[in-house]
Amino acid sequence: MTVLTVRQLAAGYDSARPVFSDVDLRLDEGEITSLLGPNGAGKTTLLRAIIGLLPVRHGTVTVDGVPLAALSARQRARCIGYVPQREDLDPGMSVFDAVLIGRAPHRGWMLPWRRADLGAAEDALRQVDILEHRDRLLGELSGGERQRVALARALAQQPAVMLLDEPVAHLDPGHQVALFRVLRQLATAGTAILMTLHDLNQALQWSDRTVLLADGGCVASGRPQEVLTPERIRQVYGVRAVTGIVDGVPVIRYDSG
């Protein structure tokens, strides 16, 4: 079932020149969608527009059929979770406190936390496997652990849609795979996931659908191996690529010549 629909969206920092326009996108329950495109294509801008951090210049975003413009910031945050590429983590905050703040859309900004909020934060920590670090300070964590804390905060929001901006950009291969596995579990549990990626092979391996942004619009969308053809890779990224199959999974190798 489609959870989030983007129709003919145009957004950008400057009202005269949107970063992209006429973008259509739909996120389905239980699916991981990868958002690809060269630097500057507007991947992050699209995520920021969807969560309302940027004014939408044209078009609509709807969640479960309700336009986001009709929702308050708090209602929107109960539907959509967001993990930015880099976040300013307050080094003096504990892991648990940093995740608990994700309950604000449910509890508000003034009232004391309920048992249910504490429980949801613990569940989120358990899901990303860092419950044992709950009392450590953020300043003491490694990059991989911090990324998992950020994901746990978004999980504590219990959103139907999860947006992630280059979730594995600063992680080693072991942590990358671990994070993708968590995302797959989330999707299996019913969450619709949209993540931006630079590594096309990760898109092939971990996403169910791919949306390719370039030149101020959406170039292609569909199953990853259908979208990521050698011609399109050359056209969008300007590199020659060959595709093949390794152990049943499609892979892309870039031509060094």
Binding site: S72, A77, R78, E87, D88, A154
Partner: peptide, 23 residues
């Protein structure tokens, strides 16, 4: 002091604070 929770959220940056629904 009563605004402690919004202050917590802002300490994580505008992107995070906005994404968890802080106006």
């Amino acid at each position: 002091w009563a605004l402690a929770r919004p202050l917590d959220a802002l300490a994580f940056g505008d992107e995070v604070a906005g994404s968890i629904g802080l106006p």
